Each structure stands twice: as structure tokens, then as C-alpha cells.
Simulated scan of single mutants.
Amino acid sequence: MRIYLAFLKRATFLILIVLTTTIGNSQTRYEQKVFSDIKMKTYTYADTLKLDFYSIKKDTVTKKPLLILVHGGGFSGGKRDNPSEIKFCEDMAKRGYAVASISYRLVRKGNPLGFSCNCPADQKIETFVSVSKDILKATQFLIDKKDKLEFNPENIILIGSSAGAEAVLNTVFMKNEFSFKKLPYATIKYKGVISFAGAIVNANYITKNTAIPTMLFHGVKDNLVPYSTAPHHLCEEDKAGFIMLDGSLTIAEKLEQLDVAHTLVVDKSGTHNWASIPYSYTNLIAKFIKQNVLEKQNIQSTIKVKHKN
């Protein structure tokens, strides 16, 4: 009888493990926080540029999706390990994703022209290209370590805030534009992109060949990065920094024309504070990724919100 009870107890324990693993990996993983024990390791991916890699301790899934986060800061500031970035990365890692938060060259740091209307338009393009190059270098570094880091290189999603949002959108959609063509894309292909108050140089470069599932957060009254199509920082046409950018609304309209999955989250009274607010929208972001990237649904939607400061 003791042997039988011991066997029964062990069998029950093993069944519970299987059920727990099944629930964590199949039913709610990638959408809800089902893990609590995560780890982080810092790597140098190019020169002195570093990235922080977050994942679950003792994970049994070796082909998890990878999220790459690119911080904001006007290309002159910001950090990959600010509290909001850390909290976001930890939250998404607890849902079962591999997450990398990267640093990049802050090419406008210390430049007296800044990145507003005094910064010549050609320098703005050079800045965009520079950061896209770093994103691609970080991506290739991670891909080269895919077996060790246990993620699926065919399921990489870029996420960016403000300057980082401009960077990820340009990296994905502008690859066939002259200034971006020379970048080391190699065989890198992203499966999704998420923007917190971002814009691109020219939405006409969004085609059937470049379009991927896209999530866009933006405030209509953003006076730095345009919500639709307008000058960057609303610069006057006679200013050196005058350059037209296509924002979230224009991008969403283009994706709708191409019948590609996208979600536009818009606050009609929101400003550029929507560069940071979405860090708290992890439930919505995780749902978008799971449905439109991992399950390959083609959901096209606009979500109207009003954020209270």
C-alpha cells in the first residue's frame, strides 16, 4: 500500500508539472504574465554599445519570440536601462518573450544644433540612418547567439519610443530608400513593429514587400513627431530643419490600403507624452503580438483612448 501511495503521489506531482507547463506555454503564454523568475544579462554588441537581455530562468521553450526595445531621448539622451524600460522588459519577459533593450550611438548628444529646427534636414536623415545601423547590428549580434539565447530569429519584433520609434519604423519600412539601402540588413527580417509616438521619412516606401503587422500609439496634438503628415517639430519651411514626416495616422492608412494587420491607439488630446505612456500598455501590446504576429491574424483596428495624467 505504501508503495502504491508513493507511486500515486509521484504520478500526481508529474501530472501537475505537465499541466502547469501546458497552461504556461500553450494557453496564456505570450499574452499574460505566467512566469515570475526572470534573469538579465548585459552584452556588448558593437564597440562600446551594450544591450540587456531578459528571459525566463530555466525555460523549456527554446524558440520564443524576441522583442527588441529602442529607447527615446531625441537621439541625444535616454538609456536602455531607465526604470520604465526595465519594468517594461521584465513585464514582457514574464509573459514568455525573450527581450533585449539596446543602447545606440547618441549622435546628437552635445551638438549645439540639437535635433529640432536648427538641425539641417540632411543631418536628421543621417541620424535616422545611424540608429537604424545600430539596430541592425544589435539584431545580427542576437541572431548569431540565437541558440544560446533560445529565441526564434524568424519572430523578431521591434519596439521603440519617440526617437526610438522613429528609428524602428525607418529600419523596417525605409530599407529600399537610397539612404538606408547601404545598411547591413543581410537576411534580417522583422515580423512586427510597435511605435510609441513615431514617424517615418516617407510612407510611400511601405509596400506589400515591406509591410508587417504594426502597432502605433500617438497623441493627435503631438508637436514634436507628427500624428499624420507634417513637418518634424512643426518647423517652418524656411528653417534648416524643415523635413516632412509621415506619422502614425498616415502609416495606418497605408497599411489599411495594403490590407496588413495594424492597430492605431490614438488620444485626440494627447501630446508627445505618448512616447512614454505605452510602457504601461503591456496587456494590449502582448495581445497584439500574440494575435497578429504569432497567430498571423489580420486584425485592423483603431482604439480611441484618453489618458489621464
Results as ranks from 00 to 15, higher is better:
residue 81 D to G: 01
residue 112 P to D: 12
residue 160 G to M: 01
residue 119 C to W: 03
residue 249 L to W: 02
residue 162 S to Y: 09
residue 139 T to W: 07
residue 302 T to A: 03
residue 200 I to M: 14
residue 182 K to V: 14
residue 291 Q to M: 03
residue 246 D to V: 01
residue 169 L to V: 04
residue 290 K to T: 12
residue 231 P to M: 12
residue 172 V to M: 01
residue 91 D to W: 03
residue 100 A to D: 06
residue 220 V to T: 13
residue 172 V to R: 04
residue 234 L to R: 15
residue 253 E to M: 04
residue 91 D to Y: 05
residue 126 E to N: 13
residue 34 V to D: 08
residue 93 A to K: 10
residue 17 I to W: 14
residue 226 P to E: 09
residue 179 S to R: 10
residue 230 A to Y: 14
residue 220 V to M: 00
residue 173 F to Q: 02
residue 151 F to D: 06
residue 219 G to C: 12
residue 121 A to P: 03
residue 136 L to R: 09
residue 51 L to Y: 02
residue 155 N to K: 15
residue 155 N to M: 02
residue 185 Y to T: 13
residue 136 L to K: 08
residue 42 T to N: 12
residue 205 Y to V: 01
residue 25 N to Q: 08
residue 12 T to D: 02
residue 39 K to S: 14
residue 277 I to A: 06
residue 17 I to D: 02
residue 288 F to N: 05
residue 307 H to W: 08
residue 173 F to M: 07
residue 27 Q to W: 14
residue 76 S to K: 12
residue 98 A to H: 10
residue 212 I to K: 11
residue 279 Y to Q: 02
residue 122 D to N: 11
residue 257 Q to R: 12
residue 149 L to S: 09
residue 256 E to N: 15
residue 237 E to M: 10
residue 166 E to D: 07
residue 155 N to L: 07
residue 222 D to Q: 04
residue 84 S to H: 10
residue 156 I to W: 02
residue 33 K to N: 11
residue 236 E to I: 00
residue 224 L to K: 11
residue 67 L to T: 11
residue 53 F to H: 07
residue 140 Q to A: 05
residue 33 K to Q: 15
residue 252 A to E: 03
residue 152 N to E: 04
residue 104 Y to S: 03
residue 298 N to H: 07
